[in-house]
């Protein structure tokens, strides 16, 4: 089946089998390997990308479902050669260790800040509770998202 999707602003057309999972389409067909696979049961969230701005687990979607939709993956966070606030914050606050959960965490954080520019610690912990991390213990991930929200607010008010 033929599909056309927009990923990080670029349009792609491809002929795919209906059973191809969206995550495999992103990783294999588009070569965007920053989106990962960590489980079989929609539990870990490392496959999360933003579909029309909303975080979705791409291991539990077929590529054909994404036809005509617009997606942002971790590779699309950097704009005009500049790291986004959330990327900076994860580095600054040691929000990652092995980096495997990180792309998804940053995308979920981005969507959260978009919706709620001033999230509390509980808001953040709640928002990332569909995403597992085995390395960091979450403390610094929460800090990173808090800091990114603050930078984003400052950027918006200045």
């Amino acid at each position: 089946m033929n599909i056309t999707v927009t990923v990080n602003g670029a349009e792609h057309t491809a002929d795919v089998e209906p059973r191809l999972l969206l995550v495999d389409f992103i990783r294999t067909n588009l070569g965007l390997t920053g989106t990962h696979i960590g489980c079989d049961t929609t539990s870990c969230g490392v496959c999360t990308v933003l579909v029309d701005g909303t975080p979705m687990k791409t291991c539990t979607m077929f590529a054909v479902q994404a036809n005509g939709r617009s997606m942002v993956t971790v590779e699309g966070l950097k704009q005009n050669g500049e790291l986004s606030a959330i990327q900076d914050a994860f580095r600054e606050h040691h929000g990652l260790q092995c980096g495997f959960c990180t792309p998804a965490m940053m995308l979920v954080g981005t969507a959260l800040i978009e919706e709620n520019p001033d999230p509390t610690e509980d808001d953040i912990r709640w928002a990332i509770s569909g995403n597992l991390c085995r390395c960091t213990g979450y403390v610094n991930i929460v800090k990173s998202i808090e800091a990114a929200a603050e930078t984003t607010r400052e950027g918006a008010s200045s």
Partner: peptide
């Protein structure tokens, strides 16, 4: 010191086994 390796991870440019073709 901020981590050197983060530069690639935060851009999704980590290189894990399954990323290699």
């Amino acid at each position: 010191r901020k981590r050197v390796e983060d530069a690639r991870f935060i851009e999704g440019r980590g290189n894990y086994v399954d990323d290699i073709t």
